[in-house]
Lab assay of single mutants.
Amino acid sequence: SGNANTETLPSGWEQRKDPHGRTYYVDHNTRTTTWERPQPLPPGWERR
């Protein structure tokens, strides 16, 4: 039932692989990409 990797990503993020097989992350909220895995927001924090 779903990929465990995507469940731990913050809302709006997606994990992808480039043509060389390297994993990167897409932030659909800001339309940016990063090599660093995004950290889920700490409990009690809200994204503004």
Rank of each mutant, 00 (worst) to 15 (best):
L9G: 05
N29P: 01
G12W: 01
G12A: 01
R22E: 09
A4Y: 09
D18C: 04
N3C: 09
P19D: 14
P19T: 11
Y25G: 03
R37I: 05
G2H: 03
E7L: 08
P38C: 01
P43H: 10
N5R: 10
Y25I: 01
T6A: 12
D18T: 09
Q39R: 13
H28I: 12
R16P: 01
T33N: 01
P43Q: 13
Q15T: 13
L9K: 05
S1E: 08
E36R: 12
G44W: 06
T8I: 10
T6H: 12
E36Q: 15
N29K: 12
A4N: 15
S11H: 14
P43A: 12
P10S: 04
P19A: 13
G44V: 07
T6D: 14
S1T: 13
E36F: 15
S1L: 11
E36N: 13
E46M: 08
T32P: 00
R37W: 00
W45C: 15
P43K: 07
H20Q: 14
G2V: 10
T32H: 02
T6F: 08
T34F: 00
E7N: 09
T33G: 02
Y25H: 10
T30L: 03
T6I: 06
P38K: 01
N3R: 05
H20N: 13
E7V: 08
P42R: 08
E14H: 00
R48N: 00
T6M: 13
E36Y: 15
L9S: 05
K17W: 09
P40D: 07
L9A: 06
G21K: 04
H20Y: 13
P43D: 14
W13C: 02
P42L: 06
Y25Q: 06
R47A: 14
Y25R: 03
E36G: 08
Q39W: 05
G44L: 10
E7T: 10
R16V: 08
G2T: 15
D18F: 00
T34Y: 04
P40Y: 05
A4I: 14
R47Y: 14
T23C: 01
P19H: 10
N3S: 07
R22L: 08
E46L: 06
G44Q: 13
T8Q: 12
P42W: 05
R16K: 12
T30P: 00
L41K: 13
W35P: 05
R16H: 04
W45Q: 15
H28Q: 04
N5P: 08
R22Y: 05
D18Y: 00
T6Q: 09
Y24Q: 03
